[in-house]
Nucleic acid binder design. Structure first.
Length: 558
RNA sequence: GCGCUUGUAGCUCAGUGGAUAGAGCAUCAGCUUGCGGUGCUGAGGGUCGGAGGUUCAAGUCCUCCCAAGCGCACCA
């Protein structure tokens, strides 16, 4: 990396000029107008050398030597500003699109995200977390990791029992044959409606609550006995299948692919078994008939893993999941992406696992994000239920795009949504504005898709022309070349922090620099056509690559 | 009460201990009728939630306080 080379050059200059051993030398991008790179090493040396930073910088500027440097000068209170030769810039720019981080090279990485519960609908949060999870998976993939995206879902537990209870009411008893009356398109809605009814009944009626708790035990029984025959089992398995079909259709539409689904029913036995074994080893303890992990010694709180009824809570199922992933993949790294509401909960589970599988815990990362809020009280509430379905978001954005750009194509709609989600840093709640997300003016996905298509169009018009080397660059050309050359650094940082928004921020800046260039410089027919075509090609390549990391398509034509 | 997350322009957000804190939207003034409509140039708008501290240097690190959201035992 050029920064490292420049740092080494400065280091050499320091030891040659002064009789001191320099510490870690950082070389940063210079601010516009101050060259390409800058170092503040003189500030740090000032105290030790008892000289003014400005004076030190001036001396060092004379002593720094590197083949790619056009000039070095001292500026400000003690900065050393460095400007690369065209050749130096050119080399960086030419290699930029293909230069990728290698931080996960050869690693097996399991990413887990989305995690919808069967028997329930996908809401806007699932859409957001899926988009984030895909982008993070892509970051790991491009840095050399073999990524296995997996999906965890609660196909058993009280929420399922509440749902099943209402479904049985609706079917008039345990009559699986009645399910045939529900057409495919209505299945998700029907199940969602039953969930609302069941939840209400559970809260409002003691009688229903008792019945639901009883039903919950029976469902665990179906799973334990691998019962597929009894009427109740038939209803359970059929509707569970409907849910997974519905998930698959949705994921296919947004471009998400999972290697494996881990239903809770599958991880629960391993979880219970492990917790019981570690109960004997003293990791867990009994309290009021339940099995709990005491988090207080670690600054956390106590959580129940197995209830006094002997049923596993989410904690035990999650423990089973963590161990199942470990057994299945023997991963070098595990990344779990969830909402930030379960951060504290997850710390307790992680801490418990750390007690008996420290290596596993060490390799695990938990990334949390906020919730999606709607801008300016936009009405997007669905007909039933008090929340926003994932499909509603796609519909609303499609409508907005039709109104703004006359098309409701999924490439643009998904580009708009994904970019709007990913341009913000992961962590806090985000505000989603459908109209803004599809606008071709301003910082949006469709804007970048359009920018890419236009660049391709220019290249298409001059398909037979030769592209020249990037030499003797004019100012506007150089600015464009410089920002293109910074793409690998952006990827490095995004991968390092697992933060896709760095890429979004960069791509928009890139497009802005290009527009500034393009406004004042003709490409085709100009005497500098060959150089400029080369720049446009590199620019389009980086745009497409970057959008690809965000999971956004960049077709040559829109 | 304790913990976590967050607090930067009217709104939505970037910001790697370094130079004058930046974008988009909105507002205002100009420019551009041809490589695809996205544009370009400029202006106004900031006690970086508040107060201390560390540092040559703090939006960034530390402490305390304030506000918002979320979480704190048999739900997920």
């Amino acid at each position: 990396m050029i920064q490292n080379e420049l740092a080494a050059a400065i280091s050499t200059a320091v030891s040659k000029t002064y009789d001191v051993k320099p510490g870690l030398i950082e070389v940063d991008y210079a601010q516009p107008g101050f060259g390409d790179f800058a170092s503040n090493v003189a500030f740090g040396l000032a105290k030790e050398l008892k000289k003014a930073p400005r004076e030190i910088a001036a001396k060092l500027a004379e002593a720094v030597k590197h083949d790619s440097l056009e000039r070095v000068e001292a500026a400000g209170g003690g900065y050393i500003n460095m400007t690369l030769t065209d050749e130096g810039i050119s080399r960086l720019t030419e290699t930029a699109p293909a230069t990728k981080p290698a931080s996960h090279k050869g690693q097996v990485v399991v990413t887990e995200y989305s995690d919808p519960n069967p028997f329930k609908v996908l809401h806007v949060g699932h859409l957001y977390t899926s988009v984030v999870g895909d982008a993070i998976s892509n970051l790991i993939r491009l840095s050399g990791g073999k990524v296995h995206p997996v999906n965890f879902g609660g196909d058993v537990g009280l929420h399922v029992a509440r749902n099943m209870w209402a479904m049985l009411k609706d079917l008039g008893g345990e009559k699986p044959e009645k399910l045939a009356d529900i057409v495919v398109a209505e299945r998700p809605e029907w199940m969602a409606a039953c969930y609302v009814k069941g939840t209400q009944a559970y809260e409002e009626s003691e009688e229903a609550k008792t019945a639901i708790i009883e039903l919950n035990k029976r469902i665990y029984g179906i799973l334990a006995a691998e019962d597929h025959k009894s009427p109740l089992a038939q209803i359970y398995w059929t509707c569970r299948g409907w849910s997974y079909d519905y998930f698959e259709v949705f994921y296919a539409r947004i471009g998400t692919k999972f290697d494996k689904y881990y239903p809770e029913s599958m991880t629960a036995p391993l979880g219970i078994q492990t917790v019981q074994k570690q109960l004997e080893n003293g990791v867990f303890e009994r309290s009021d008939g339940a099995v709990v992990f005491r988090g207080e010694p670690y600054g956390l709180h106590t959580r129940v893993f197995i209830t006094s009824n002997g049923l596993p809570t989410y904690e035990a199922k999650d423990t089973g999941l963590i161990l199942a992933k470990w057994q299945d993949y023997h991963f070098d790294r595990s990344v779990v992406i969830t909402g930030n509401d379960i951060l504290e909960y997850m710390k307790v589970v992680q801490k418990s696992v750390e007690q008996y599988e420290p290596e596993l815990a060490k390799r695990s990362t938990h990334i949390t994000h906020g919730n999606v809020k709607l801008a300016g009280g936009v009405k997007m509430s669905s007909r039933k239920g008090n929340f926003l379905r994932a499909s509603d978001v796609l519909d609303v954005v499609a409508e907005a795009n039709k109104a703004a750009n006359g098309s409701a194509d999924d490439v643009t709609v998904l580009g708009a949504i994904k970019y709007a989600f990913l341009k913000q840093r992961i962590g806090a709640d985000i505000v989603f504005a459908p109209e803004e997300s599809v606008s071709l003016e301003g910082n949006s996905g469709p804007y970048l898709q359009y920018a890419h298509a236009r660049a391709r169009s220019i290249l298409g018009k001059a398909a037979d022309a030769e592209h020249g080397g990037l030499n003797e660059l004019e100012d506007d050309e150089r600015s464009l070349a410089v920002i293109i050359s910074r793409y690998p650094d952006v990827l490095d940082r995004a991968v390092d922090e697992l933060m896709p928004h760095h890429i979004a921020t960069y791509l928009y800046e890139l497009a802005q620099v290009f527009n500034r260039f393009y406004e004042h410089n003709r490409v085709i027919g100009d005497s500098r056509e060959s150089v400029r075509l080369r720049l446009v090609a590199l620019y389009a390549g980086v745009l497409k690559d970057g959008l690809g990391v965000l999971g956004i398509e960049a077709p040559d034509r829109l």
